[in-house]
Amino acid sequence: MRWGMVIDKLRCVQCYSCQVSCKQAYFLPPGIFFNRVATGETGQYPMVRKHTFPLLCNHCTDAPCVNVCPTGASYQREDGIVVIDSDKCVGCKYCIMACPYQQRTSFKYKEQYPGQGFNNYEKFGMEHHPYQEGTAVKCTFCMERVDDGLAEGLTPGEDRTATPVCVNACPAKARTFGDMDDPDSKIVRLIRERNAEQLRPDFDTDPSVYYIIS
């Protein structure tokens, strides 16, 4: 079993719901993202397009972040999800430097309304979902949802509570999550039939996130 995600760029309308839903679900302060939407332009007037790439941790099969971690805090589970154990992380930031996709951040609490204190939502997050400042953080493919779902007999990617928040949140249904080791899974079919591509395969890390480009 290896979890992966396909993002259909034809469906994506650059609404940022993935980015914002993820921030809300994980109580992420300003400046920290597990999901990001990168935008720009390609082409020249009038043969031009906006350029949109929803980005998240690629949960690479050969993950540079895991390879450089001196404490074993960054590790890869058997299901392919790359995880950071913040109790073991010493905040050396090697992984942040090593990630070619720039998907890791050193955590720091910040008020959503600068200078106005933490509100009840932020306080709830600090109490019930605390982060250790200075440690590296990133997307976990919502592994607790996946694990809890599997324990309840659900299928991640099909059953909502077992599926990553960003997949559920997308109003354009641009995201598909599933088991890339299952040849009959929707995700494998999409990769095969729609010629989905990994981002910057030249980095040679074999990402678990694919994009439908055309």
Partner: peptide
């Protein structure tokens, strides 16, 4: 380790 809301 940070947990998702489902872990409450």
């Amino acid at each position: 380790m940070a947990k998702s809301p489902s872990s409450t």
